[in-house]
Design a protein around this nucleic acid. Structure first.
Lengths: 225, 225
DNA sequence: GTCTTGCATTTTGAATTCAAAATTCTTGAT
DNA sequence: ATCAAGAATTTTGAATTCAAAATGCAAGAC
């Protein structure tokens, strides 16, 4: 859906085409996911309108959408706050993410082209570079993009959208929890296994690794909740 | 989330507590899912405001939310229409639903109490009654509620919410496609197997049946697209 | 008769306005 | 000095208003 818009062109023209509320959804979502607006932040409409340069109408529309995505909490007559997922929600979300990725594994192993697989392997190598360089942010980004990549290889748009939404909800928690470099090495080993399984087109093995990876992800982040 | 609100009381009082836009989301969602507003219907804001008795502001907020749920399509400067899922989207959605239910199977077999399982078996029996009575609507409702029930037994709220959203998107298509009674009998056999697997707490078997059931569901509905 | 062009009407998008609820601040009593 | 009650202010919820875009219609050209 958004591919054509986001990939193409200097974006300024494209952005002008979008409705204001859609722009606000995108912008505000980023502010939340990236942590500029950390969990628990109270959202003052007038104030945020000022900084975003829009009136309250499109902002409020955007808040409702983000609430339905689980990024914002709306309390009647009391306004919006940036949602802080409970430990249980994080666990539940990780379980579902694992399930979705295991599902994707089957289709990815069946449908992916050799070049697509090679591409993902290349991303994995770049991730290793950042790991060795102790660049936590870039390491994390590529880590996520490998998971998104496996999902994408399945070629199921519903799956892609769902995965994106869930990943967004707990992206920050995962990043914050992933603070001890010794944790990374376990994660790296699992990623090695993933790529190997994908190259062997072994869906069962890939699925198992992905589910295991999510269980371990829980162990890695739970201390931060 | 909505349990406390929807289950309790004559609702009038509770509804008054909700914000207008939330009411409209619920009401409009039902109109779409139940088919009162069939796919492709152009939504005239002023007109719908009239029938719902609200101003355009809450209605437009609701439309944005329903768009993010995939039930409504928003075209800039051209308004909203009730979304008609493409054949591919229906297939993709069924695949994901199957994956989610198979995931739920594991947890349901592990965590469900005997009485919960018995309850689901009872629903299955009631479904059979409606099958024998050729009551398509009630048969269909109980059929769906068995799937929702398995999801619920997993005790994962994220999973429940996701499943609900996806089920809502294609509920109408599935109902329309399920028009030949001879199709029902296959579906019934699969449901028998599900209940048996659940009673045996055989997660592997239950997962397999659920995935198979979704593949067959696709065969049953594809002709209607 | 059909197609095009321009105007009128309708419809959507977004800002503003108004009302109600919540919060904050002040004042006064103990 | 602390707390409670109530007024003032802020903030949210929803209707209304205004502007811009799209649609429909009519007149005229071919």
């Amino acid at each position: 859906m958004q591919d054509a818009e986001t990939i193409a062109a200097p974006s300024t023209l494209k952005i002008a085409r979008r409705s204001l509320h859609a722009q606000v959804v995108v912008g505000l979502r980023d502010l939340i996911i990236e942590g500029t607006l950390p969990p628990g932040t109270r959202i003052n409409e007038a104030q945020l309108c000022e900084t975003l340069g829009v009136s309250r109408t499109p902002l409020r529309e955007a808040l409702k959408v983000l609430a339905s995505e689980g990024l914002v909490e709306l309390t009647p007559h009391r306004g919006a706050t940036v949602r802080r997922p409970t430990a249980n929600e994080v666990l539940d979300t990780l379980v579902v993410l694992g399930g979705l990725e295991a599902l994707a594994a089957e289709y990815a192993c069946r449908n992916a082209t050799p070049s697509e697989i090679a591409e993902l392997a290349a991303v994995h190598q770049r991730m290793l570079d950042f790991y060795r360089a102790q660049n936590r942010l870039e390491y994390f980004k590529l880590n996520q993009s490998i998971h998104s990549g496996i999902i994408r290889l399945a070629g199921n748009h519903t799956l892609i959208a769902l995965h994106d939404t869930l990943q967004a909800r707990i992206k920050r928690v995962r990043f914050m929890g992933n603070d001890r470099p010794e944790q990374w090495s376990n994660s790296i080993a699992e990623h090695e296994e993933m790529i190997a399984a994908l190259q062997a087109r072994d869906a069962v093995r890939l699925g198992a690794v992905l589910r295991l990876h999510m269980e371990n992800a829980w162990q890695r982040v739970r201390h931060a909740l």
